[in-house]
Nucleic acid binder design. Structure first.
Lengths: 191, 191, 191, 191
DNA sequence: TATGAATGAGTATTCATTCAT
DNA sequence: TATGAATGAATACTCATTCAT
């Protein structure tokens, strides 16, 4: 518990600052200061600022994946699984607004774009729940016959937009709105 | 007309560089160099880098709005108007990939977020086509009864995601795919 | 005359500081300060600290070569030419003690060693006076039949040592001592 | 004997790294790592990095002096003693190239210069073989009547230059070349 | 009006040294 | 005695901005 406490402090501080102020608004010295460690200490845990950022992204992604897998039931219907997946992602980001801000920034930065391309190209060997649902749905004539990426855009595009608006205070994503929004997404992709 | 040529050169150069290399990959000196002007000259047209960037965003937005207004027919059906609107935006960004890259970066940067919030709060006085279509649609029971921002998210979230994937080379947005994708969006928001 | 004044100021300041305090005792900020320019200004003239140092070495070398060539008479005897060459180098460094300190440090630093190897290997296309004298001397049976590098070591090894001792105040190299020392070198290499 | 093993490991590691990579290429942490000790442990044996370096120099010098004294015969002729002395030093450095690299760097660094000055000024109380040979030689009219430091420069200047060239691979110092080179030095200093 | 040389505050990163264990 | 995690001052370099010409 004490093992990783400093590493976690640093990531926490970096997350707060980057979410609030962007990548260039978060100098290493400021991160160190907020984390309550010396400037050099960060480099005992992360090779460079880039590595720190990449690591943050990786951990965030893994945590989200864990949450998703925990309640996922492959035997349920396409619709149920789709709605579960979307709702989980949406609730996760609503619960962790800074994760969302960070990921937006990351995915639109030069690092993010290349990582995204690499990852997507590599079609991660692990059972990819997203792909699974869409492929089964298309094959079973439940979903529209469109490329996977189009389905992904139709599903996750609105989700991210909703979370953003929620974080900006433009809407309040309560349970009712979450449910209705995701049903609307489903209406978009279903045949 | 010759008056503004330098101003345009600067914005063009800034657009190219920022789209390619991000905000921090585009120093003022490099922008000046690419624009064929002196470094100090930029400051005769723009108070600061931030102002330059904000100005670029504003012009881009206005250009897009012009394009939209040019072919917009308020007398047509909600569906037709919605599809026209989405298709125009989508085609516009597909035709101008650098505009899209710039806007993504801008909207996710600290400036972008605050500008976005300010603007949206102010509910821009101009006739807002987006709002118009959605409000009429909801009032006429053609669209789901959801907050305007949710509708906006359902419509524009997928569009931006699609353009991004297109720019990354993950899909190719031909006319068929554009049509089908937007119809899917319509299916999502319609009652 | 005003053209290069800043560049020269920087090189002068760097020379002073490096000669006095070594490479790591001469931070860029200190060099800038001593030169009376801003820290960033150095980088308008030199790409990096390494380049600055390499450039200093190059200029110093060229100046020395100019001085040597100015009084060199290829038609004179091997002995006369050898003594002229050594005396000129020796007097040059006695007159410019900081050049000497700088070159010692440079030639023993990682940069210096590699540059030295490269240069020597490349056997500079220009008429190389050193090589010329030694080769003619060996061919004409005036000098001992030893490899060129051994001759170079026998000639320039003592010269550098003498200058160092002079700069340290251990001896005073007046005309008499210079003459006698170089004659001793000649006694070493002659047949 | 086991007591000092760690101290020796540290000096050995420091020697390797400094010879290979220069003073600034050999951080304390790297030295500790190569020596197989903790970073803090170095400070139990040496007050600071500067002290470590000075200590290394001192030990190296003492070792060389031991080797010299072992085979030195004060009753032999000036010439024999001079040649023995030079050959021993030359062979010693050829056999220990890292010692040579270290000393070059040390003697040209700011520490080195001041230590050198101090030492030479103090005219080390120990019987100084170098001084002895030269003084006797001059008094006996065997050597040229020149200041001691000039003799030292004429003798050791070439030796260090030869070793450097050997280490750089520019010449190969075999027995023949060593003998001939040292004879040339003798020719330079003898009357 | 236009220039671009000059500036210096700001950045990521390194490394000798300390000290709690 | 030995460790190595932690430190933070120091360093090379960047870049938005200014201003003399």
């Amino acid at each position: 518990m004490k093992e990783n406490s400093k590493r976690d402090d640093i990531m926490q501080a970096a997350l707060d600052l980057i979410a609030e102020r962007g990548f260039h608004g978060a100098p290493m010295a400021m991160i160190a200061n907020r984390a309550g460690v010396g400037a050099g200490t960060i480099y005992r845990y992360f090779e460079s600022k880039d590595v720190l950022i990449a690591e943050m992204f990786k951990e965030m992604e893994e945590k989200l994946l864990d949450v998703i897998l925990k309640g996922y039931h492959p035997e349920r219907s396409i619709r149920e699984r789709f709605i579960y997946l979307c709702a989980t992602v949406l609730r996760y980001f609503v619960a962790h607004p800074r994760y969302c801000r960070f990921m937006e920034q990351f995915l639109n930065s030069p690092y993010g774009v290349s990582i995204r391309r690499d990852k997507i190209m590599a079609k991660t060997g692990k059972t990819d729940i997203f792909t699974e649902i869409f492929q089964q749905g298309i094959a079973g004539k439940v979903l529209k016959d469109l490329p996977l990426f189009v389905h992904a855009a139709l599903a996750f595009g609105p989700i991210l937009a909703l979370v953003r608006d929620h974080n900006l205070g433009l809407i309040v994503l309560d349970d009712y709105l979450i449910e209705k929004s995701i049903e609307a997404c489903w209406d978009g992709i279903k045949k």
